[in-house]
Nucleic acid binder design. Sequence first.
DNA 1: TCTGGGGTCCTAGGACCC
DNA 2: TCTGGGGTCCTAGGACCC
Length: 368
Amino acid sequence: MLHVDLDQFIAAVEVLRRPELRGKPVVLGGDGDPAKRGVVSTASYEAREFGVHSGLPLRTAAKRCPDCVFLRVDAETYDAHSALVMATLRETGCPVEVLGWDEAFVGVETGDPEGFARGLAADVKAATGLDCSVGIGENKLQAKIATGLGKPAGVARLTGATWFPVLGGRPPDAIWGIGAKTTARLAALGITTVRQLADADPRRLAGEFGPTTGPWLVLLGNGMGESAVDPTPYVPRSHGREVTFQRNLADWPEVTAQIRRLARQVAGEVTDRPVARVVVKVRFAPFITVTHGTPVPAAQQRPPGAPRPAVEPLPLAGAAASGSATGPAPEQWAATIEQAAQAALEKFTPGRPVRLLGVRVEFADRPE
DNA sequence: TCTGGGGTCCTAGGACCC
DNA sequence: TCTGGGGTCCTAGGACCC
């Protein structure tokens, strides 16, 4: 199993199209204005020298590094570069499983995985000008963690034999899938290292974390994990939009208007898949997040561009025959999503100022 | 110096049914 | 007048990742 991860991906793409940025501290995040609410998406290695890293508030980044170049995140450009990287990986003929803009698993049978990995990195560099690191493992977990050991622009390998020598003494959050919260809960049980997690009793952790998650954590501690690459195209389960306001919204009519706007935006972006549910997210000041959802009635689930079903649903009694082969008109579809969002919004208790609003649709045709 | 925006998956608890 | 046990489905929230 190989894991390919582009180095400082979106900062590297910006340097490609603006070569004068090479060698400078570059910070990507928000709309590029470090005085606004927002966090760092990616910092170049030069910017990291100043203590700027992903997730840091932009205002803090500007204080730590006043001379950093701040740029807005330009998703369309990164989409295009990402597609070129993934196409390059697929040219090997190996199965490729895309994880995001800048990561993929590649499955390969070879007697020389390091050599193959170096070749892969060279191919990506030649095709795109971008550096990547490659991790090698017996499964996805080992490969993913190995990549971090090889950065930047290197190749590293983890195996069942090297897992504990390398990771045994590290805290559990060194493992992909274990974060700060789980690490804190494990510490409360006296488990503070990967080695201790591996040696823990799965039944004890089942009591603490649930029958599935508990034993799964022990497997992770032992470096075990999925080893099949899924090359099938990614099919989204949901799609949404959210905004954090520069100043909190104090009055509810403004909240209602913003939810209507977001719902219409999402409806316009979802043109060919049925929607089962619309979920509204409200983040109240200071940082309290609440979500509520409403189902979209079956009779209204077909968006304007959706293919005509093999068997037409029975028309409602008294409803005028629409004669449409492709579902309701865009305006009618937008109204459907907007009304569902408004219904979800009515489940909230207005009161505190609102910091963030979001609208998300969950698709009715989710696989499995 | 308050803490983005895009997602996925799992769990707990309530509703409901037999 | 009080109250079982199993099962499923839906919803909200938590945790995590890039």
